[in-house]
Design a protein around this nucleic acid. Structure first.
Lengths: 332, 332
DNA sequence: CTGAAAGCGCTAACAA
DNA sequence: TTGTTAGCGCTTTCAG
């Protein structure tokens, strides 16, 4: 920068002004300095700038599992919102490892980023938040921390379950089955609870069977699907709510195989997550799209608000609703 | 840090020494300073440190498409290798947008990271590399830039195609079909070339049919699969090499449906990429696993070597081979 | 082994 | 409007 100043025949501070407050510089000088900047190929050092000004324009996002498109959507949303405010988002993949969550939190903290978005391992959230006395503002995604000391943005899984069941009931299904597990995963149990609520609203007109699986993979769905297919046609559920798309795909695969019930004629199937799997299924799968991008945007909005107006900022808990996507598997 | 110095009754420089060269400090002082650090909850400022020392310990990784697990594997590999050297990896998702590639390159450049890993849009690679006179070392992944001015690490798709075809031929298949497209994508055409080479080696004992698809999605595979299934059994290929797992999944789905050939009894199918899709397919799919992690590790190794020993560093082009994974779809 | 002081590249008062 | 100067928080000579 000193070189630029010399080259343009101005003082150091003037160059800085050209960079940060161009309107406060005489047009002629401005032009001259800018030419020198180009001529010398000068590129400002963000670290020095951040150090001197005490501000940063990067937001750090610690993500538990980037291989899950739900989280990548959050990242996209965060970027969109950040960009609107002239901020950048840098991602750190903690890869489902609690220690890495901490490592990256520390990294961003010590790096003095403007703020931190944290999508943690739900079981690890409180530990991480307590572990450091973080000097940065942090907004938590996808889980509600015990401490009310930060904003949190989550997806409402109960409503998702409700919407799924509601959709099947509205299209005439009267015997639903919920397939998924383990119930220790709160998204699974929340979705199940939503299904129960929809069923309860029918005042006995709709039955619910619950098939617990050990996981939410395609194989679990196939196993459950075979069980269901083996049932006599009149005692068989006519609407399946799967806890995840992969499970739904498995169920459909099982039904397709050994002369099982036809989808969607005999039975409707709906998944959850709007994964690729839902798209790529032979029978395109109805599903609930998680509000990932929206969550990312909202979390970033809250974070920026907190950064900009620390004084009158109230921590919030925002629950965003998933969107019902109707495809062939539940259309008759 | 000044507080720490005061609290411990030492000079500023001594605290710095405790942090950076502990062995050069008297055990007693060391202990005392460390206690003060804990007591005051002092956390060093990385920006200041980087600015003063002129070094950073973060590597920036600009990734074209994090939703593709291939690239996420690279990120994992990069992290592993970086960690071995006490470095951290921060990710920037350019999301298939050329402009964002540039934005993030600039960000990392101005942030004075230790070095940059770039997995670009292949068609955009040269533009990006030329766009800035980047002051950081950069290693390119997944494409070979025209300029020989940086290291590059790629996956060898030709060998992958060869290995796939070779495997089918070795297990007795004599009429192969390559399914995929568009051929303007070099991974597709490279894989095809590999298949051709394996077929050529058979000196006429093996036939090859090529079915070009407009894309590499499941739907494309299903369409091709239906075409193949409609062929008379004796004129039908008995080994399918798909350009991607999704395509292979589609082919299998089509075969499964209308009394088509049985997989793997009548026909072997092999995919490419080792996606979830390969796993979750009803008939587990043989495939070629991309050397993603290895690429990430190797690229990072080269980058660190370049950073540490700029003098005697020679730019390299490394081609890594995919790994054949045999599952049910090609086992008889 | 410890302390003092210069400086990394920049910003932001404050003066001129 | 432009120049001067004092830091931002740390590292690193260089004396003591």
């Amino acid at each position: 920068m000193e070189d630029v100043a010399r080259h343009a025949g101005v003082a150091l501070g003037t160059v800085s002004h050209v960079l940060n407050h161009p309107h406060k510089v005489a047009p002629a000088t401005l032009e001259r300095v800018r030419r020198s900047i180009d001529a010398l190929g000068f590129v400002p050092d963000r670290r020095a700038r951040a150090l001197a000004a005490g501000t940063s324009n990067v937001i750090g996002f610690v993500v538990v599992d980037l291989s899950n498109s739900f989280f990548l959507d959050m990242a996209r949303g965060a970027e969109q919102e950040a960009q609107r405010h002239g901020l950048n988002v840098l991602l750190a993949n903690s890869d489902v490892q609690p220690e890495k969550e901490l490592v990256y939190m520390h990294l961003f903290d010590e790096e003095h980023v403007a703020g931190i978005l944290l999508a943690p391992l739900p079981t690890n959230a409180d530990d991480v938040l307590r572990a450091g006395r973080w000097r940065r503002d942090v907004v938590v995604l996808n889980t509600v921390p015990g401490d009310p000391d930060s904003c949190a943005v989550t997806a409402d899984n109960e409503i998702g379950g409700y919407l799924a069941a509601r959709h099947l009931i509205d299209t005439g299904r009267r015997h639903l089955a919920f397939v998924g597990g383990p119930f220790t995963l709160s998204p699974v149990s929340d979705r199940h609870r939503g299904v129960e609520r929809a069923v309860a609203e029918s005042n006995g007109a709709v039955r619910l069977t619950t098939i617990k699986t050990s996981n939410v993979q395609a194989a679990d769905g196939r196993k459950a699907g075979r069980q269901l297919a083996a049932l006599p046609a009149d005692g068989r559920p006519d609407g399946i709510v799967a806890a995840a798309d992969l499970v739904a795909v498995g169920v459909v695969q099982a039904f397709l195989a050994d002369g099982g019930p036809r989808v969607p004629d005999d039975v409707s199937v709906i998944g959850y997550d709007n994964n690729r799997a839902a798209w790529d299924s032979e029978i395109p799968l109805s599903t609930l799209a998680q509000p990932g991008e929206e969550m990312g945007r909202e979390a970033t909005r809250l974070l920026i608000e907190e950064i900009r107006h620390p004084a009158h900022h109230e921590h919030q808990r925002v629950h965003l609703e998933p969107t019902l996507i109707i495809r062939q598997s539940s259309t008759r």
